[in-house]
Each structure stands twice: as structure tokens, then as C-alpha cells.
């Protein structure tokens, strides 16, 4: 592979929406977690929110990974050791990326 990023497939708009929500939710849960740490007690109506959040983070991460596992198996995406997959949310195209590439924040496979 010479390019840092190469298109290897695409998903349907519905599939794209599914992973987009999971990706956004995963980030949102992570950033809510950071916020809770410094928040005054009166804004945390019930401390059960922590437990719910931790559970939710676990479940969302699992569903996120399951999406990539299921779609990669279904579409037979090329898998290279040390590389990761990335989706472009605008087009639904799937790319394979070398680790050096700034794939980062585009809903890539963890």
C-alpha cells in the first residue's frame, strides 16, 4: 500500500447513519464522563448517573465494534495488520489507512 488512505468499499446510507450515531454517542459519552468529574453535586441530581454512564459507554463501544466486525465480514473488506478502517460520513465510503495517516476523527475502527 503506497497511499496513506485508500478506498476499499462503501456502505449504504442507513448503515452509514447507524455508525455515525454510534460514533457521535461514543464521543458524547466520553466527554460527558469528563464533565461529570468536575460538576457540583447539585447539578448531579442522582449519583446513579455515573453507573448508567459507565454501563452505556461499555455498551456503545461494544455496538460500535460489532458494526465494524459485521460490515467488514459482510463486504469482505481488505484487512492489513497495523492498518485501520475509516468511514467518510459524507459519502459512506470506507478507507483503509496506515497508522501514520491522520485518520482520527472520522468514525474509524478503534
Amino acid at each position: 500500500m503506497t497511499d496513506a488512505r485508500r478506498k476499499i468499499g462503501a456502505v449504504t446510507p442507513d448503515e452509514r447513519d447507524e455508525i455515525k450515531v454510534l460514533f457521535e454517542r461514543k464521543n458524547a459519552l466520553g466527554e460527558l464522563f469528563r464533565s461529570l468529574a468536575g460538576m457540583p453535586d447539585e447539578e448531579l441530581a442522582q449519583s446513579a448517573i455515573y453507573e448508567r454512564l459507565v454501563r452505556d459507554m461499555g455498551e456503545t463501544a461494544t455496538r460500535f465494534q460489532a458494526w465494524w466486525d459485521e460490515k467488514s465480514a459482510r463486504y469482505g473488506w481488505e484487512n492489513i495488520c497495523g492498518c485501520s478502517w475509516e468511514i467518510d460520513f459524507a459519502s459512506g465510503d470506507i478507507y483503509i489507512c496506515r497508522p501514520a495517516a491522520p485518520c482520527g476523527e472520522k468514525g474509524g475502527q478503534p
Partner: peptide
Amino acid sequence: ISDYIKLRMYETGHPWFNSY
């Protein structure tokens, strides 16, 4: 305010929590 927005979007199950 941002902390409160995040918390309330999450607590109320608002769809915006997944897209803000």
C-alpha cells in the same frame, strides 16, 4: 453551561445527545 447541556441531554434521552 456546556456541562449542564451535556448532562441534561443525556438524562432526558434527548436525540441531540447523539448529534451536537
